[in-house]
Nucleic acid binder design. Structure first.
Lengths: 108, 108
DNA sequence: TATCTTTATCGTAATATTGCAATATCACTT
DNA sequence: AAGTGATATTGCAATATTACGATAAAGATA
């Protein structure tokens, strides 16, 4: 194992933030999150057209977002309805804000 | 070009957030930022021992952080003094908070 | 049941990231 | 000028990510 991230040498907090940040580290996932949150009825069928990536790629990105529990998905008829998981979303915000708070710039 | 991120199809705002998030998307960089911010005199010579990665790897991570202007570096004798760039740091915070604010979970 | 629509998965190619040994560079000291 | 200690760069191997065509699966509808 050479090119793999050495997660084991870092604290849980540092890894948690890194994993969360990684989800936001691709413009497609940022765009997807923003689009889903803006939809009234959150039918995500048109995500492929809106974003401009192929259906498998969109599905893959959705999976990345789902991995950290940020999406709730339910079937409404033949269409899948993806929504932001509010609790997880708050949690994510907390993780970032916590990190920002802890950084104090008291030197130089 | 097949496996490369298609940055050109996304908005500037989405790309900016993604680039910023990418810097935080590795536990080493999170740990480095936190460590530097905690130091009184910010001599970062001991970063290699503290983090537990090789000197070239640390240097590389520092470079990633520098790329988005998050570090100010000045030489103090033979030692390099890295500090958080306060203005950029505030800017970064703003970018994330803006994104969090814009997400409204008004469905499902 | 057959067909249509939508999402998921598989397989694979291209590119990016991570990590380190070796080496270079740079500033200070003697 | 030579030596020392600290950071940067180069080169390369291992792994991860991104993207998409092809195909599968799942539910609705005729």
């Amino acid at each position: 194992m050479m090119g793999a991230t050495k997660t084991h040498i870092f604290t849980k907090a540092h890894n948690t933030l890194a994993v969360a940040a990684k989800v936001l580290a691709h413009p497609a996932r940022v765009a997807i999150l923003q689009y889903i949150s803006k939809q009234e009825n959150c039918i995500c069928n048109d995500l492929v057209d809106v974003i401009g990536l192929s259906q498998p790629t969109i599905s893959q990105h959705l999976n990345e977002i789902k991995k950290i529990g940020l999406l709730k998905g339910t079937f409404h008829g033949k269409n899948l309805c993806y929504c932001i998981n509010t609790e997880k979303w708050e949690e994510l915000q907390e993780i970032f804000q916590d990190f920002f708070r802890k950084i104090n710039q008291n030197c130089c």
